[in-house]
Amino acid sequence: MKLGGEFTKGLLKENPVLVLALGLCPTLAVTNTMVNGIGMGIAATFVLVCSNLVISLIKNLVPNRIRIPVFITVIATFVTVVKLVMAGYFPGLSKALGIFIPLIVVNCIILGRAEGFASKNNVLRSLLDGLGMGVGFMLILIIIGAVREILGAGTILGHPLFGESFKPALLMILPPGGFFSIAILIGLSNLLQKRLE
Protein backbone atom coordinates (compact mmCIF):
# COMPACT_ATOMS: atom_id res chain seq x y z
CA MET A 1 0.00 0.00 0.00
CA LYS A 2 1.19 3.54 -0.77
CA LEU A 3 2.23 5.66 2.20
CA GLY A 4 -0.63 8.11 1.73
CA GLY A 5 -3.08 5.21 1.84
CA GLU A 6 -1.91 4.30 5.35
CA PHE A 7 -3.13 7.70 6.49
CA THR A 8 -6.39 8.01 4.54
CA LYS A 9 -7.74 4.50 5.27
CA GLY A 10 -8.50 5.52 8.85
CA LEU A 11 -10.73 8.39 7.76
CA LEU A 12 -13.59 6.47 6.15
CA LYS A 13 -12.81 3.05 4.67
CA GLU A 14 -11.46 1.56 7.91
CA ASN A 15 -12.77 4.19 10.27
CA PRO A 16 -12.19 2.87 13.81
CA VAL A 17 -15.63 3.82 15.12
CA LEU A 18 -17.95 3.49 12.12
CA VAL A 19 -16.51 0.39 10.47
CA LEU A 20 -14.44 -1.44 13.08
CA ALA A 21 -16.77 -0.50 16.03
CA LEU A 22 -13.82 0.16 18.37
CA GLY A 23 -13.53 2.82 21.05
CA LEU A 24 -17.26 3.17 21.55
CA CYS A 25 -17.23 4.14 25.22
CA PRO A 26 -15.42 7.49 24.92
CA THR A 27 -17.24 8.20 21.64
CA LEU A 28 -20.53 8.31 23.50
CA ALA A 29 -19.48 9.39 26.97
CA VAL A 30 -17.61 12.63 26.29
CA THR A 31 -19.45 13.99 23.27
CA ASN A 32 -22.16 16.04 24.98
CA THR A 33 -20.28 19.15 23.84
CA MET A 34 -18.02 19.69 20.84
CA VAL A 35 -15.09 20.99 22.91
CA ASN A 36 -14.98 17.74 24.89
CA GLY A 37 -14.99 15.79 21.63
CA ILE A 38 -12.04 17.77 20.28
CA GLY A 39 -10.10 17.42 23.56
CA MET A 40 -10.66 13.68 23.71
CA GLY A 41 -9.76 13.33 20.00
CA ILE A 42 -6.46 15.16 20.42
CA ALA A 43 -5.57 13.18 23.55
CA ALA A 44 -6.32 9.83 21.89
CA THR A 45 -4.46 10.80 18.68
CA PHE A 46 -1.38 11.77 20.67
CA VAL A 47 -1.38 8.46 22.54
CA LEU A 48 -2.04 6.51 19.34
CA VAL A 49 0.80 8.13 17.38
CA CYS A 50 3.33 7.88 20.21
CA SER A 51 2.49 4.29 21.13
CA ASN A 52 2.54 3.19 17.47
CA LEU A 53 5.95 4.88 17.10
CA VAL A 54 7.49 3.27 20.18
CA ILE A 55 5.98 -0.15 19.56
CA SER A 56 7.19 -0.29 15.96
CA LEU A 57 10.68 0.62 17.26
CA ILE A 58 10.78 -2.05 19.98
CA LYS A 59 8.85 -4.78 18.13
CA ASN A 60 11.94 -6.93 17.54
CA LEU A 61 13.19 -6.62 21.13
CA VAL A 62 9.99 -7.81 22.83
CA PRO A 63 9.53 -11.57 23.29
CA ASN A 64 6.30 -12.71 21.69
CA ARG A 65 4.78 -14.16 24.86
CA ILE A 66 4.85 -10.97 26.91
CA ARG A 67 4.12 -8.52 24.12
CA ILE A 68 0.61 -7.55 25.33
CA PRO A 69 1.68 -6.48 28.85
CA VAL A 70 4.60 -4.56 27.31
CA PHE A 71 2.28 -2.79 24.85
CA ILE A 72 -0.15 -1.92 27.65
CA THR A 73 2.69 -0.47 29.73
CA VAL A 74 3.86 1.68 26.80
CA ILE A 75 0.31 2.92 26.21
CA ALA A 76 -0.29 3.58 29.92
CA THR A 77 2.90 5.65 30.07
CA PHE A 78 1.71 7.99 27.32
CA VAL A 79 -1.76 8.17 28.88
CA THR A 80 -0.17 9.29 32.14
CA VAL A 81 1.72 11.99 30.22
CA VAL A 82 -1.55 13.19 28.65
CA LYS A 83 -3.34 13.09 32.00
CA LEU A 84 -0.72 15.22 33.76
CA VAL A 85 -0.40 17.73 30.90
CA MET A 86 -4.17 18.12 30.67
CA ALA A 87 -4.61 18.52 34.42
CA GLY A 88 -1.85 21.15 34.44
CA TYR A 89 -2.76 23.26 31.40
CA PHE A 90 -6.49 22.60 30.77
CA PRO A 91 -8.04 21.93 34.20
CA GLY A 92 -11.59 22.60 32.97
CA LEU A 93 -11.33 20.09 30.12
CA SER A 94 -9.61 17.59 32.41
CA LYS A 95 -12.54 17.82 34.83
CA ALA A 96 -15.13 17.45 32.05
CA LEU A 97 -13.46 14.34 30.59
CA GLY A 98 -12.96 12.86 34.08
CA ILE A 99 -12.17 9.15 34.21
CA PHE A 100 -12.23 8.88 30.43
CA ILE A 101 -8.67 10.25 30.27
CA PRO A 102 -7.15 7.34 32.22
CA LEU A 103 -9.52 5.02 30.37
CA ILE A 104 -7.71 5.76 27.08
CA VAL A 105 -5.46 2.89 28.25
CA VAL A 106 -8.20 0.36 27.59
CA ASN A 107 -9.46 2.05 24.42
CA CYS A 108 -9.49 -0.88 21.99
CA ILE A 109 -8.44 1.33 19.05
CA ILE A 110 -5.01 1.90 20.58
CA LEU A 111 -4.18 -1.66 21.64
CA GLY A 112 -5.79 -2.88 18.40
CA ARG A 113 -3.48 -0.77 16.23
CA ALA A 114 -0.45 -1.64 18.37
CA GLU A 115 -1.11 -5.37 18.08
CA GLY A 116 -2.58 -5.42 14.58
CA PHE A 117 -0.39 -2.88 12.78
CA ALA A 118 2.58 -1.35 14.62
CA SER A 119 3.99 -4.71 15.74
CA LYS A 120 4.23 -5.80 12.08
CA ASN A 121 5.16 -2.64 10.17
CA ASN A 122 8.03 -0.15 9.99
CA VAL A 123 8.19 3.15 11.86
CA LEU A 124 6.98 5.51 9.13
CA ARG A 125 3.98 3.37 8.20
CA SER A 126 3.02 2.90 11.86
CA LEU A 127 3.25 6.64 12.43
CA LEU A 128 0.95 7.40 9.48
CA ASP A 129 -1.46 4.63 10.50
CA GLY A 130 -1.67 6.01 14.04
CA LEU A 131 -2.23 9.53 12.75
CA GLY A 132 -4.93 8.43 10.30
CA MET A 133 -6.79 6.34 12.86
CA GLY A 134 -6.53 9.14 15.42
CA VAL A 135 -7.87 11.75 13.00
CA GLY A 136 -10.67 9.39 11.91
CA PHE A 137 -11.62 8.90 15.57
CA MET A 138 -11.48 12.64 16.24
CA LEU A 139 -13.67 13.34 13.19
CA ILE A 140 -16.43 11.13 14.57
CA LEU A 141 -16.13 12.66 18.04
CA ILE A 142 -16.44 16.16 16.53
CA ILE A 143 -19.46 15.24 14.39
CA ILE A 144 -21.34 13.58 17.26
CA GLY A 145 -20.30 16.33 19.67
CA ALA A 146 -21.53 19.05 17.27
CA VAL A 147 -24.87 17.32 16.58
CA ARG A 148 -25.57 16.71 20.26
CA GLU A 149 -24.53 20.21 21.31
CA ILE A 150 -26.58 21.94 18.60
CA LEU A 151 -29.73 19.91 19.23
CA GLY A 152 -29.35 19.48 22.97
CA ALA A 153 -28.17 22.92 24.06
CA GLY A 154 -28.66 25.13 20.98
CA THR A 155 -25.00 26.21 21.04
CA ILE A 156 -21.83 25.43 19.10
CA LEU A 157 -18.50 25.61 20.97
CA GLY A 158 -20.45 27.50 23.64
CA HIS A 159 -21.83 30.19 21.31
CA PRO A 160 -25.65 30.36 21.09
CA LEU A 161 -26.89 29.58 17.57
CA PHE A 162 -30.61 30.25 17.70
CA GLY A 163 -32.82 32.97 19.14
CA GLU A 164 -34.46 33.05 22.55
CA SER A 165 -37.45 31.05 21.37
CA PHE A 166 -35.39 27.90 20.62
CA LYS A 167 -36.24 25.08 23.02
CA PRO A 168 -33.27 22.67 23.14
CA ALA A 169 -34.00 18.94 23.11
CA LEU A 170 -32.36 18.18 26.45
CA LEU A 171 -32.52 14.46 25.68
CA MET A 172 -29.67 14.81 23.17
CA ILE A 173 -27.06 15.73 25.81
CA LEU A 174 -28.31 13.01 28.16
CA PRO A 175 -27.05 9.42 27.68
CA PRO A 176 -29.90 8.25 25.36
CA GLY A 177 -29.05 11.04 22.89
CA GLY A 178 -25.56 9.61 22.53
CA PHE A 179 -26.90 6.17 21.64
CA PHE A 180 -29.39 7.60 19.13
CA SER A 181 -26.81 9.86 17.42
CA ILE A 182 -24.28 7.09 16.90
CA ALA A 183 -26.99 4.69 15.67
CA ILE A 184 -28.03 7.19 12.99
CA LEU A 185 -24.42 8.05 12.11
CA ILE A 186 -23.44 4.40 11.57
CA GLY A 187 -26.65 3.85 9.59
CA LEU A 188 -25.86 6.82 7.34
CA SER A 189 -22.27 5.67 6.84
CA ASN A 190 -23.54 2.17 5.87
CA LEU A 191 -25.88 3.80 3.35
CA LEU A 192 -23.06 5.98 1.97
CA GLN A 193 -20.64 3.08 1.61
CA LYS A 194 -23.31 1.05 -0.20
CA ARG A 195 -24.01 3.94 -2.60
CA LEU A 196 -20.28 4.36 -3.32
CA GLU A 197 -19.92 0.72 -4.41
Binding site: P176, G178, F179, F180, I182, A183, L188, N190, L191, K194
Partner: peptide, 23 residues
Protein backbone atom coordinates in the same frame (compact mmCIF):
# COMPACT_ATOMS: atom_id res chain seq x y z
CA UNK B 1 -35.07 -3.82 9.94
CA UNK B 2 -33.98 -1.45 7.13
CA UNK B 3 -30.80 -2.93 5.57
CA UNK B 4 -28.45 -0.08 6.48
CA UNK B 5 -29.60 -0.19 10.12
CA UNK B 6 -29.00 -3.95 10.49
CA UNK B 7 -26.57 -5.06 13.18
CA UNK B 8 -24.83 -2.37 15.17
CA UNK B 9 -27.08 0.67 14.46
CA UNK B 10 -30.30 -1.03 15.54
CA UNK B 11 -28.53 -2.39 18.64
CA UNK B 12 -27.57 1.18 19.52
CA UNK B 13 -31.17 2.32 19.03
CA UNK B 14 -32.35 -0.39 21.44
CA UNK B 15 -29.65 0.63 23.92
CA UNK B 16 -30.82 4.24 23.61
CA UNK B 17 -34.40 3.28 24.42
CA UNK B 18 -33.22 1.19 27.38
CA UNK B 19 -31.11 4.09 28.59
CA UNK B 20 -34.21 6.31 28.29
CA UNK B 21 -36.15 3.84 30.42
CA UNK B 22 -33.36 3.74 33.02
CA UNK B 23 -33.43 7.56 33.19
Amino acid sequence: VPPSLKGLPIAFMVAGLMSLAFL
